[in-house]
Design a protein around this nucleic acid. Structure first.
Lengths: 195, 195
DNA sequence: AAAAAACATTGATCTGGATCAATCAGCCGG
DNA sequence: CCGGCTGATTGATCCAGATCAATGTTTTTT
């Protein structure tokens, strides 16, 4: 399980054996059942989480009780309420497991230590965040410039490998659409493909 | 001018004198007139840009010719089309100056070199991107969960120091609203405050 | 200081997608 | 193999904010 993490890191930076040995004890393994919370809004997010297996989502709940999904994280992704993790203020997001999931977690303190002791990890996270920023920029742009249909089609393309693992109403929630809207888009496409 | 950059970096990490000397020649200073492009969509974004003085915006233009502002960058901010910078593919964003502006720019090649030779800069950018991710998360959340009025008020609060430097219709464009909507929100507030 | 841009306001109307309200389908545990 | 979740579909209606169309104001240019 730790190997999944090391493999992921070594795709971006080189680690020496002693560095790997230093890293290992900083992570805590944990299993989550389907629907189990990893974090609830108004708690403090104490750990950064790496997904070794399974699927998680982060989401916030608005005044009217509607859920808005912020991120899906599956094998090889990191997830957290970054704001809360960095400031140690109350989290705004909930994170829970959509499947049986196995994760590796590192605490705020150990994360600081890790980046200070292993400069390659500063570099790893720098590259990781860099890529993440590109994704967020794209998503933000899509949210203002695209129609519901364009958003859905783009999502279906980008998330093709795990599309089957995400129920439609959660895709809707991620895209800021009503589930009915996704349903209608799909129907329209079906009939168009047939004709 | 270079000092503005070094000050900014040293708020996050420590630099030795030799490191500063190494960094200096990697940056190119440039002045921009109001309305001058720093980057146009479909060019390749070759440099990361630090704003020493002035105000820039990045934005994309949709099929209907509408501009959607992605970011404002003033003194102490970085701006680029990150996707294009990293991949050397065509940029999707335009970047131009909203005021007379002075910037420091670093090329893709020198950025690589910088982070390899000065690990503190990996750390600096790691922290920078980390904070940037928090901001983007917030903005994304706001875009799906808040009303037009909430978005505008939040913006006015967050951007208070430079609110006077940004025309209203550009705020509208940043928030994904019509200029008329901002106007109406303000009127409503005015009369409410008066009553 | 006049002309022209650029920006803001206001009102009337329109619309994409939300919301409300059923109904339907699949799956899973006992 | 049935009863109860959980999710998907379909139709009818509604609404926040867009769009269209003037008019007014401020800033820039010459």
């Amino acid at each position: 399980m730790f190997e999944v993490l090391v493999d992921h890191i070594e795709k971006k930076v080189h680690l020496t054996e002693p560095e790997k040995e230093l890293i290992r004890p900083l992570f805590m393994a944990r299993k989550l059942r389907k629907k189990q919370y990893l974090l609830q809004a108004s708690e403090v997010c104490t750990h950064l989480t790496f997904v070794a297996k399974g699927l998680l989502r982060s989401y916030n709940v608005d005044d009217k009780g509607n859920e808005h999904i912020n991120q899906f994280a599956w094998e090889g992704w990191w997830i957290s309420d970054f704001y809360s993790f960095l400031t140690q203020e109350e989290a705004l997001f909930n994170i829970d497991a959509m499947e049986e999931t196995e994760v590796l977690m590192i605490s705020r303190h150990d994360y600081e230590e890790l980046t200070l002791k292993v400069p390659a990890m500063d570099r790893y996270f720098r590259i990781l965040y860099q890529n993440s920023l590109v994704t967020k920029d794209r998503r933000l742009m899509s949210s203002t410039t695209h129609t519901a249909e364009e958003k859905y089609l783009q999502f279906a393309k980008r998330y093709a490998p795990i599309l089957g693992r995400i129920p439609q109403h959660l895709i809707a929630s991620y895209l800021g659409l009503a589930p009915e809207t996704i349903s209608r888009i799909r129907r329209k496409r079906m009939t168009k493909d047939a004709g």
